[in-house]
């Protein structure tokens, strides 16, 4: 054994590669996922910069010609009230993406905390907590959202909460399953044997290791929420004109589809493209985070 009184100041510390960085490396090699990621980046930037890049205001009407098919002034045409469709899609994207992302974050926070606590404590607590989830699951969930919206009042923030409050159920089940298998791992036993507190074990050992399924499921939740918001808007519970969301635009467009097809084609394609990209990214992440794929 070497002598203890050594000078450690001279040590040059080498950096390691975390599993996450390793996963990013693999993600970079996945062409489809990269394509999805760049499409998402473009759509996200466009939504962020909407007030600057939008050619018109979202309530500005150009009524002289009625609904116009795509032309020089209105690259995606105008709707039946003469509003520029491109502008409305940009503003709609802001709402749709915000609903998608925020509701997913809400579901992530509730689901991860609930699921990891249930899984880690186990026994009777777990049993009761998961039966509660089962009961909420068994309620027709749209009905549930509608009630929440009616009680809490119809505004965009309640929409986030209502959708997130439904989505967390699946998230909590996934996390609980992860935690149940993780807590039997020796590194958790090791932490317990050192006397690490329960909270620390959950935060430092369990949740970081459940990251893979968490990220993947989140990318799949975003499209679900965007679609649900469309449905709520269709029922008149979501966003109201002159504000718009993709769902609302598609609903409006669908009604006049036969006369003014561009009114449904453009918002529907953008929505489809976004959902497709999210799925590519989700798939890519799953492959990248799967340690079994590491060997080749």
């Amino acid at each position: 054994m070497s002598s203890i009184a050594k000078n450690y100041e001279t040590i040059r510390i080498e950096k390691g590669t975390s599993l996450l960085r390793d996963a990013l490396y693999r993600l970079k090699k996945n062409k489809l996922a990269l394509f999805g990621l760049s499409i998402l980046a473009i759509i996200a930037t466009a939504s962020l910069l909407t007030p600057i890049i939008a050619p018109y205001s979202y309530e500005e009407q150009d009524l002289i010609y009625g609904p116009q098919s795509p032309n020089k002034e209105h690259i995606m045409g105008t709707d039946d009230l003469g509003r520029d469709l491109f502008t409305r899609i940009l503003y709609g994207g802001r709402i749709s993406l915000m609903v998608g992302v925020l509701a997913t974050i809400v579901s992530l926070i509730i689901g991860v905390l609930y699921g990891s606590i249930a899984g880690f404590l186990g026994g009777r607590t777990d049993n009761i907590m998961m039966r509660i989830v089962d009961i909420i699951y068994s309620l027709p969930f749209m009905f549930f959202v509608i009630i929440l919206m009616v009680i809490a009042g119809r505004n965009i923030y309640n929409l986030f909460i209502a959708l997130g409050a439904v989505q967390w159920l699946t998230m909590s089940r996934i996390i609980r399953g992860q935690v149940l298998s993780l807590k039997e791992k020796e590194f958790v036993l090791a932490a317990k044997s050192m006397g690490v507190s329960k909270g620390s074990i959950i935060l430092r050992h369990l949740i970081p290791n459940a990251m893979g399924p968490m990220i993947i499921y989140s990318t799949l939740t975003i499209p679900t929420v965007i679609l649900e918001e469309s449905f709520l808007s269709f029922l008149g519970l979501g966003v109201q004109p002159p504000m718009s969301s993709w769902g609302l635009l598609i609903t409006d467009g669908a009604q006049v589809m036969e006369i003014y097809p561009w009114m449904v084609i453009f918002p529907a394609s953008i929505l489809a493209l976004t959902l497709l990209s999210l799925n590519f990214v989700g798939d890519g992440l799953r492959d990248a985070l799967d340690p079994k794929a590491k060997k080749d």
Binding site: G16, S18, L19, K185, F187, L189, A190, R204, P208, M211
Partner: peptide, 8 residues
């Protein structure tokens, strides 16, 4: 299994 893979 005894070392947390996410920790340095």
């Amino acid at each position: 299994a005894s070392l947390n893979p996410r920790m340095t």
